[in-house]
Design a protein around this nucleic acid. Sequence first.
DNA 1: ATCTGTAACTAAGAAGTTCTTAGTATTAAT
DNA 2: ATTAATACTAAGAACTTCTTAGTTACAGAT
Lengths: 95, 95
Amino acid sequence: MAKGLSQQKLGLLLGMDHNTASARMNQYERGKHQPDYLSLSRIAVVLEVPVAYFFCEDSTMATLVCRYYKLAEKTKMKIKSLLEIVDENEISGQG
Amino acid sequence: MAKGLSQQKLGLLLGMDHNTASARMNQYERGKHQPDYLSLSRIAVVLEVPVAYFFCEDSTMATLVCRYYKLAEKTKMKIKSLLEIVDENEISGQG
DNA sequence: ATCTGTAACTAAGAAGTTCTTAGTATTAAT
DNA sequence: ATTAATACTAAGAACTTCTTAGTTACAGAT
């Protein structure tokens, strides 16, 4: 486990009960059980990644969403504008 | 519902049993129940979006992952390379 | 080697969730 | 008003995770 964080400590950080944190985190890490959305989004907060990260099918998509996630709001807005321009070009170019 | 697809028909496309497709899809669409990962990834296939799409926190991230998802493998590789170059610059620039 | 403390891991019943069944309600067309 | 198709729902069945109560594995001290 990264950061020297034990399964139990991570569980506690996620707001789990002291008695259950260790077992639950272990079940998740070993793939025995799956975390519900609430737990998943708390894990995302602790690991500083977007929830979408956990569902990325390849490492490039994963990198992409993590980098996007950490951008300033202004930069996100610029990317939004850029994507809209690309859309317009595609419509006039091949529609 | 888009595409003139009824809840039942979408359910059947996802491989659900004829008797249960309608109720289940309705429960999902109304937010009464949540689809498990298998159903979710089948929905993603039908809608031609990556699974990560359903977990994107803002519309720009959603657009980004959908656009990336539809790129050719070659283009994905190019983006991978670009991201690696950005990483190197960040390390020499501020590390 | 043995003791001690911490972390990893697990089985099994409790608790909570979704899935299935069997419908009712709504809508649109005739 | 009737019909057909779709949307929607309650409630029990089936299935999943959560909690409990441990055991197992490992590292450090003696």
